[in-house]
Design a protein around this nucleic acid. Structure first.
Ligand code: ZN
Ligand code: ZN
Ligand code: ZN
Ligand code: ZN
Lengths: 131, 131
DNA sequence: CGATCTTTGACAATCGTTCTCAACAAGCGT
DNA sequence: ACGCTTGTTGAGAACGATTGTCAAAGATCG
């Protein structure tokens, strides 16, 4: 009933901290394997899922539908500007947008409102690399 | 080289118009079958893909990753407030948000900026139905 | 009508993600 | 340190949405 601390779980968290940007489960699995800290793929998925439920990591969907995970600095609600190519991420605050979203939704009689606000682009480095 | 008008393609467009709200490819396929206008599932996917490329339909991803399609009234850029349960959709304009999004992204040196802004909720009818 | 050339559809294949379940190991009380 | 209990792991199967394959069907045009 209590969450147990295992080698695998700490390894996943370490990999997230080390990589810093939004990464897919498979990328993390590969990174762990490369470092010698082998962890089963299913276990990586389970760890990320648990971390997401505990709000320890943020999850977002890439354009192709793959889930990307990141350990953000703030625990509070925020959004992201993400590089499509390398995953580089900037955390974004949008007080105006938050207010706008809830007002618009309420005006239409909708409940249990959630919003998805993400910005995608190509970061300066990736633009340079593409020459 | 030219797009041909076929029974299947017009059937898909008709189903979209009739259903009005965001629907998955499989839901549309089922709706067509129910009406007797049988169309292959792969064909439904191909038709939706073509329509999306031509900006004739909007596509968005449900929380479970499934793609949902809708024939919106406006062709111009806009966003959506969607009922999680029944797919009921309200088209949303957000001039403030548009300005905010491009300013924030540019300030970070990102290029080719796109944004995802979608609102999810439970519509009045679905809330009532859940009694 | 006939030739051309896109489109269709049943089915296989892909791919991210979840499930299964026997082997394993944390945490705990002794 | 030693078992017990019970959550956790991992290899592989299963899943589900989507896409690829390719021979047969049909839209368009002269
Ligand atoms: Zn980049
Ligand atoms: Zn729309
Ligand atoms: Zn509803
Ligand atoms: Zn917009």
């Amino acid at each position: 009933m209590t969450a147990r601390m295992t080698r695998q779980r700490t390894a996943v968290v370490e990999a997230l901290d080390e990589l810093a940007d939004f990464r897919s489960a498979q990328q993390l699995h590969e990174a762990l394997r490369a470092r010698g800290e082998s962890v089963g793929l299913a276990t990586v998925y389970r760890a990320l899922q648990a971390l997401a439920e505990a709000s320890e990591v943020d999850v977002l969907r890439a354009e192709d539908g793959e889930s990307l995970y990141r350990r953000c600095a703030r625990r509070e609600h925020h959004h992201h500007l993400v590089c499509r190519m390398c995953g580089r991420t900037v955390e974004i605050d949008g007080p105006t947008v938050e207010a706008w979203a809830s007002k618009v939704a309420a005006a239409q009689g909708f409940d249990d409102i959630e919003h998805t606000i993400e910005l995608w682009g190509t970061c300066a480095d990736c633009r340079a690399a593409a020459h």
